[in-house]
Design a protein around this nucleic acid. Structure first.
Lengths: 245, 245
DNA sequence: CTTTACTAGTGTGTAAGATACACTTTAAAA
DNA sequence: TTTTAAAGTGTATCTTACACACTAGTAAAG
């Protein structure tokens, strides 16, 4: 009967599915969408490829997974190798597998996004001559499916930033309310009301206001704040607190 | 100087990263977390492995990616081959790459979750003798990192169900308000207030109330509804509507 | 035919949170 | 001392979330 046939068939296919074929091995790549914030605007770091295929075109930073590491480690290694950066917030995004996404060879790529504060890392070696920061809406056309990866990364960053305190990864340790607001305005791509924003942030009660001012922007000077990570973690553990902007 | 050295080093490594090695090719698997709802409870479908390694243990449904398909296609194929199901909602979740996750061989696995209505698919061939539905909290210990995959899937389902109308994938085409509420209570694992739930759903204005009752549960009978997908899509496009429970 | 039993169905008041909105303060520079 | 430019601050109103309890309808039992 149909079900029995299907059953036998399924068990056969089970075997087929699981007796693998060396032929079906693939190359796994990791590509990093690196977001940076320079107190004004949200940017992404791109490099001009100095190797084939697509030499001379702009692309994300990427590399291949090695047998001796997992994907998170590969992402960290790739980022470090090409930019000198380490100890950076990274998160896996999505795995891209269109058959001809890399015309040279069958490659599946796992995208990661990273968040860094541009100013604090200015001299970490990001000045590979071929690397450059681009405004989100001024990024050039990229190779393969890298544009799609960036779109996904932006969407994810937007969602995450609304419910997790990942924004602070993009700011220096000490920051002003205005910088924090600029950051959220960049991420969400819309203007926010100054008073409402400050009221909301203060009601979350996870920032420490310092007795110190940033005098570089205004005459009056703006108080500096730091994110109180311990307090935040404690609130999350104890009351299931959600950081909600 | 440091930066110049780093620059040269980086370009060298660029080459290293991109002159790939056949040695670094890996097997890519796909594993499916299949959620089902039977008008009462949320369940997952597991199979007892009839092949090594870990023969006899429970696991998710899975298989290997072939050179001729992308990951979405592989997930659809694996699901269809092992259960007979087709035309099912699926979404990519996460890529698992711990080095020893599969003790037999280096395998990276991409997890997908699928949503189906158990009743409507009772005779689609899910009765492979070794497959069974489990309540979420009664699932046995699974092989490899499959438990972790399920936890991630539950978390994702919870978040998605709050902002996208994917819940309807788990219900028959026609359903009662009580079934819809049961579904959300199962997904969120908490009781909801009947009146508030109905008020909220009605305010979303994407259901059509039929002139037809389900008489199987109560004497009075409960009106049946269908999800108006066209109306929903139109609202999303025109006003950026968000389905928010 | 009447009663019983069982689930479906319905509306409002209150509290909390979101939003809109404009003037005063501060300190450096002119 | 005046000017300038950004920082900082509070309240009223609207909207949304939540708590809450009784009536309606039908089939089955007596």
């Amino acid at each position: 009967m149909k079900i029995i046939n299907h059953l036998e068939e399924a068990q056969d296919l089970n075997m087929q599915l699981n007796f693998y074929d060396k032929e079906d091995q693939v190359l796994l790549a990791v590509d990093c969408i690196i977001f940076g914030f320079d107190k004004e605007n949200l940017k992404i770091l791109l490099i001009k490829r100095n190797f084939e295929p697509e030499k001379g075109k702009w692309s994300l930073i990427g590399g291949f997974l090695k047998k001796t590491e997992n994907l998170d480690q590969a992402a960290v290694r790739v980022l470090h190798t090409l930019t000198g950066l380490s100890d950076i917030y990274m998160e896996q995004l999505y795995t891209h597998s269109k058959i001809d996404r890399d015309p040279g060879q069958r490659t599946i790529s796992v995208s990661y996004y990273a968040l860094i504060d541009v100013e604090s890392h200015k001299f970490d070696g990001i000045q590979i001559d071929s690397a450059r920061w681009f405004e989100l809406n001024e990024a050039p056309d990229l190779i393969f499916d890298h544009n799609e990866m960036i779109q996904r990364a932006i969407a994810r960053l937007r969602r995450r930033a609304m419910t997790k305190p990942i924004g602070f990864e993009l700011l220096p340790e000490k920051f002003t309310m205005r910088q924090l607001q600029n950051l959220y305005e960049s991420i969400l791509d819309k203007k926010l009301d100054k008073r409402n924003f400050i009221n909301k942030i203060n009601s979350l009660d996870v920032l420490i206001k310092l007795d110190e001012k940033d005098m570089t922007v205004s005459r009056k000077g703006a108080y500096l704040y730091v994110f109180d990570k311990e307090k935040y973690n404690k609130k999350v553990e104890e009351d299931g607190f959600i950081f909600k902007i």
